[in-house]
Structure formats: C-alpha cells, structure tokens
Amino acid sequence: MIRFEDASVTYPGGVLALRDLSIEVDAGEFVVIVGLSGAGKSTLIRAVNGLVPLTSGKLQVNGREVTELSRAGMRELRSEVGMIFQGFNLVERTTVLNNVLMGRLHRVPTWRTLLGMYPKADIDIAARALGQVEIIEKAYTRASDLSGGQRQRVGIARALAQEPSIVLADEPVASLDPPTSHVVMRYLQQISRDLGITTIVNLHFLDLATAYADRIIGLRDGMLVFDGPGSACDAQVFEDIYGRSLTADDTMHKQAAL
C-alpha cells in the first residue's frame, strides 16, 4: 500500500512540484495519473521509490516511512518497486538479457555483478520476465537493435525481474506510436491483474487513461484535482485537469488520424 499524507515537493530553485497531496493506493490497484507536463506526475511517481525526496509531509510505502529510510533501507524498498521509463533507459550497448538482469541487482552479491557472473536462479527469473512480455527470443540481441515497442517490453521485463509488489511507469508510451502504445498498456494491465502488482502509470492522453485505468488521479500544478474511476471522467473533469476543454490534440486516437 502507498499512502501520501500532506506530501509536498519543492525543487531547488523554488518550483513547487507537489502541494499537500494526500492519496492512498491499495495493493493490486491499477492507477493512472493524468495531467499536463509539469503538473507533478513524474515527481509523484519518483517520490514513491525515493528518487525524489519529499520536502514535507509523509509517505508510506509497503509499511515503510520513505522519508526516514537509511540508504540500505532505501535500496531494500526500491528492490520491491519496479520502474518503467518514457525513454526506456536501457543500456543500448549490451544484450537484452543483461538489461533485464539489472532487475536482479539487489539480490545478487556485488562481486558477482562486477564479474558479470549471475546465479542460474536469477537468470531464470530474468528469462521468465522476458517470457511474460513475449520477447524471450531477443535475449541475446543488443538493446540498440530493437524497435521502440520491443525496448519498452524489455523495460517492463527489467521491472518484472525485480519480482516487485509495485510497478511505477513514467509516461511509458510517450515515445511510441498508437498501436504499440496499446500493446504496452495491455501488458501493464495484464501483469497487474495476473500478478496482483500495484501499478501506477503516468499518461498524458486521457482516452488511453480511461481505457485502461481502474482509477484515475488528475493532477494540476501539483495539486489533486480528480480522483475516481475512469467512467466518472467527463468533460468537466477534463477542464479541471487541463484548464481548458477537450480538443483533438488531447486524445491519442484523433491525433493519430491527423
């Protein structure tokens, strides 16, 4: 479970990215966060695994107080939280398998990592993760030789290799074309359902959000402006989130048709 209590984040330079946010995400939920660029979506997601520290307020993740964690405690927490990125963040020059094995680092002794000698059990877990996103045949391909959609599936496999209880996805489809975006979203949804993984996804297309989310959280200027099921997301909610009414630019389908 994830619980924000009056959480605020101010970046050096004075930018207020989150303002007094209080939300709770239960185990196994599939939550999509929507909002404009700079609304605080990335900050919220990065607060969960401590990549961005809170300036004030409280944040509990899997029973731990994130703001009070030691360095080792933080690594322990992060190992339970998989993360998927907009730019995939793969190591281009190495194989798909090596990229996925990154998800095992917390469980593998440092000396083994340095020598690149991963235990059989961890390689099996990485292989299983690649199987889950149906890209196992690319295990020994260099990441730079993959298409965008394949790269993001490797990104998902890397997160799954952590055997996480929470998955955070920061704009996972922003670099992909519409059909590929749906493929990636379906993998995320399926994984969340099959394995009971709490999933938080940042999106900026509202139609994609309503199509997949159990629950939508709308952010604007770092503040919560909507929290509810996708079905409750009407034109008024849209205006609250985006500060104007819906246009063709805001939905992926209409934009793809242009």
């Binding site: 992060r78 995939f88 793969l90 990154m102």
Partner: peptide, 13 residues
Amino acid sequence: MGPIEAANATGAN
C-alpha cells in the same frame, strides 16, 4: 544518464 536512474531504481548499490 537514463540507465543510471534505472539501476538506482532497482535498488542496486
């Protein structure tokens, strides 16, 4: 810097 963020996010030292 992307892979660095990814590795840090997995709990690597």
